[in-house]
Simulated assay, not measured.
Amino acid sequence: MSTVPAQLAVDADLVRALLESQYPQLAHHPLKEVGDGWVNYVFRLGKDLVVRLPRRDSVAGLMAKEQRWLPGLTAGLATGTSVPLYVGVPEALYPYPWSISEWFDGLDVSLQPRDRNVALARPLGDFLNAFHQPAPRDYPPNPVVGGTLATRSQAVQERLRSGMVPHAARIEQIWAQAVNLPPWNGAPLWLHGDLHPANLIAKDGTLQAVIDFGDLTAGDPATDLAAAWLVFDATGRRRLRESLGRQYDGDPSVWLRARGWAVYMASNLLAAADRHPGLYLVGSETLMEILTDDLTWL
C-alpha cells in the first residue's frame, strides 16, 4: 500500500477519459499505472509515452512550471528529459494540469549498484554543462533549493538531532563548514533542483534521461553538483568533475557547497523514509560517501 497522501484519486478509467477528451488520437493505446510517487501519479501509455498527473493541490504548480519552461530549456539537449510532449489542461474530471512525456525504457538509477554509475558521469556532466545556463529574471523561484545553504540549516539541524542521521556529529561539522562558505558569485544558472538517482534513467551503461523537473529553478549550481555524492562513488565523482571542464573554476567553493547540498538532500531522504522507502538506501549511501571522501579529486 502507498504511504503517499493524495487529495484526488486517479485511476486508469479517469486517465482514459482525459485522453478521450483532450487527445483522442492517443486514447486507444494500452494504459497501465507504473508509479505512485509523492508528487505525481504515473501511467504508461502504449510503448512510447507516459502520463504524469499531480496528486494534490500543493504540487499542481510544479507540473504547470514544467509545462511553461521545459520545452524551451530542453530543446537541443542530447540527453532525454521528461519534457511535456502533450500538455493536459484542467477540466471537470480532473482539476490540475497534467502532461504526456516520452517513456524511457531503462532502469531507475537508484535501483542499481552505485559502482555501475561511473559510466554515467560523462553524460551527466554533458547534461549539466548544457543545462546550467544563465536564467532570465523571471525564472521560477524555489523556496528550498537554489539559494544559500543557510536557509536549510533549521531543517538539517532538526534531522541531526532526531537520531535518524548516522554519525550526526561529524555530519554537523561538514554542514557547518559548507554553510559558512562564500555564496555563488555568478549569475543564477538554471537548475534541475532534485538531481538524485531516482530522477536518472540508465540503459546499457549509459544515461538515457533526466526526469522530474518539478523543482526547476535557478541559482547556485552547487545544488545540482550534489549529484557527485548522491549518485557516484569516488571514481565517479572524479570523472564527473573532469567531464565538467572549467565551467565552475571561477568559484573555488562550489564543490564544498555542493557537498553541503548533498548533506541536506541525503538527510531529507532519510527523514522521508516513510514516504520514499526505496530511497532510504540512497540517503544512507550518500552520507557514507560524504564521510569517507578525502576530497583529493578536487
Rank of each mutant, 00 (worst) to 15 (best):
T3V: 11
F43E: 11
L77G: 00
A178C: 00
S110Y: 00
G278Q: 13
R259G: 10
P221S: 04
V42Y: 00
L62E: 09
R239L: 15
A178G: 06
A228R: 13
Q133P: 07
P97V: 02
L19N: 07
V89L: 10
I290M: 01
N117V: 10
A266G: 08
L181C: 05
A272Y: 11
A64W: 02
S110E: 08
D249I: 08
N40V: 09
E91L: 15
E289H: 14
V165L: 00
N142V: 10
L225A: 07
R68D: 02
E158R: 12
V83S: 02
H276T: 15
P197K: 10
V42C: 06
L200T: 02
D194S: 09
D105L: 07
T292G: 04
L240H: 09
P97T: 09
L85Y: 00
L195S: 08
L120S: 02
E20Y: 05
L62T: 09
G186I: 10
R56V: 09
A9E: 13
T286W: 07
V210P: 11
L128Q: 00
S284W: 14
L18T: 09
S153T: 15
L31A: 12
T3L: 15
S110A: 14
P277K: 11
G46N: 05
D48G: 02
P113A: 06
I174L: 15
D251C: 00
A266S: 08
K47N: 13
Q154V: 11
D11V: 05
V165N: 03
V145S: 03
